[in-house]
Amino acid sequence: MMEKRDEEYIRDVQDGDILAFENIVRRYQSRLFSFVMHLVRDPEVAQDVVQDSFVNLYKTVDRVDTKRKFSFYVFSIAKNTAFSYLRRQKKQVSLDDVAELAVDELLYEKLFDRDQAQAMERRLAELDEKYRRVITLYYYKDLSYEEISRKLRMPVNTVRTHLSRAKVFLRALISYENS
């Protein structure tokens, strides 16, 4: 049976089909976990934040505009839930982290969007080999900077720099294609 699009599942949920929400959860849980992990840096906390995000999403599902891209909404809720958690823990979130997360949100949405899989492959292919490896290990394999550094035998700061440059390049490429 062909899987439905996000918007179709959301319309089903808005029409009272609670079970359809489970499909949304299964589709986004791993992506959201990876996304939230980069902010809270604790797997158990990330699980709790992801659960809270989905529950918050369900509570506001009637307000979702199915004509707009649903994944933006999901990642937005996850980001806000993670920030709420960090504020409750009185953890400082630097402006750089917020800016980085905003880029990450966009990249997560693009990297894991099934409809954009081919386009993303093409964009990644345009990256330099060293940047492509770092991006793949960070986003698709969920490795930390230290793990990437050990795997690729390069200093952690070099990993950070490569990742930062790769993100800037990808963001510029996506903006150029959208303009």
Binding site: S30, R31, S34, M37, D142
Partner: peptide, 11 residues
């Protein structure tokens, strides 16, 4: 990407 299953708890 790390796999995760919170669907039961969320539901």
């Amino acid at each position: 990407m790390k796999t995760l299953d919170v669907s039961d708890r969320v539901m």
